[in-house]
């Protein structure tokens, strides 16, 4: 597979008051990767993906996606271009059914009700929620709600799926199932995930970026990162 750049940032910066949460970050993501972003709390991970998804506006720098400058594009337009984002805190439509949740996502790219229904079904199957389609989303277990959120991302058929701490609060069994789901997703989309659980990171990621105090501390394949003394010093040593 040819190496194609999917997403690139140059000098990306965001300040909150006196604090520089993301500091002149140059970052490149290739098509087909599963990239994990790790780093201690307050390293700027969520702010960084917020800048990519358009939920937060940068103070300086540019974001290129699929060869196009999207720095000034509002969040909803970026989604249409193929950047799907799942929230750190579960964010679904609790009063609507699972089917309706997925349909809202699918109709973002489809016009006909039959196609929308089929896409909703397909997304549900991809995460193993096909039996829960008629149920109220708010009535699902926490683990299933997280899966539903991933499925909503899938229903968008994104080029890039950003997952913000997807396994937080999941049981071990649920995490295993989640790993299977993400590997399947990665066959069609590039995945960028923020993750605290190092077992998940090591099992999934094809490459890791370590953020610390708003800057990239290290970047590379999982094994190399795990051995990197600077990373161990800043992060892994204190990780649980």
């Amino acid at each position: 597979m040819a190496e194609v750049t999917l997403l690139q940032t140059r000098g990306l910066t965001r300040r909150f008051g006196g604090l520089t949460a993301v500091d002149r970050v140059d970052f490149t993501l290739m098509q087909g990767e599963i990239r994990a972003i790790i780093g201690p709390n307050g390293a700027g991970k969520s702010t960084f993906v917020g800048l990519l998804s358009g939920r937060i506006a940068p103070d300086a720098g540019t974001v290129l996606f699929d060869g196009q400058d999207i720095t000034r594009l509002p969040a909803h337009r970026r989604v249409r271009l193929g950047i799907a984002y799942t929230f750190q805190i579960t964010n679904i439509y609790p009063a609507m059914t699972v089917r309706e949740n997925l349909a809202v996502a699918a109709q973002s790219r489809l016009a006909h009700e039959a196609e929308i229904a089929a896409a909703a079904q397909e997304a549900a199957i991809a995460v193993g929620l096909e039996d829960r389609l008629p149920d109220r989303a708010g009535a699902l277990s926490y683990g299933h709600q997280r899966l539903l959120e991933v499925a909503m991302g899938l229903a968008l058929h994104p080029k890039l799926l950003i997952l913000d701490e997807p396994t937080q609060g999941l049981s071990d069994d649920e995490i295993d199932n989640f790993l299977t789901v993400v590997r399947r997703v990665a066959q069609t989309a590039t995945v960028l995930l923020i993750e605290h659980n190092m077992d998940v990171v090591m099992a999934l990621a094809t490459a890791i970026t370590v953020l610390d105090r708003g800057r990239i501390l290290a970047e590379g394949p999982p094994e190399a990162i795990a051995r990197d003394p600077a990373v161990q010093d800043a992060y892994l040593g204190s990780a649980t």
């Binding site: 969040a75 909803h76 984002y85 964010n91 679904i92 439509y93 809202v104 973002s108 968008l156």
Partner: peptide, 15 residues
């Protein structure tokens, strides 16, 4: 309904 139930989620689905 999606806008009523959760505007932020709806925005991040591309609307």
């Amino acid at each position: 309904a999606a806008v009523r139930e959760n505007p932020e989620r709806t925005r991040m689905l591309g609307y």
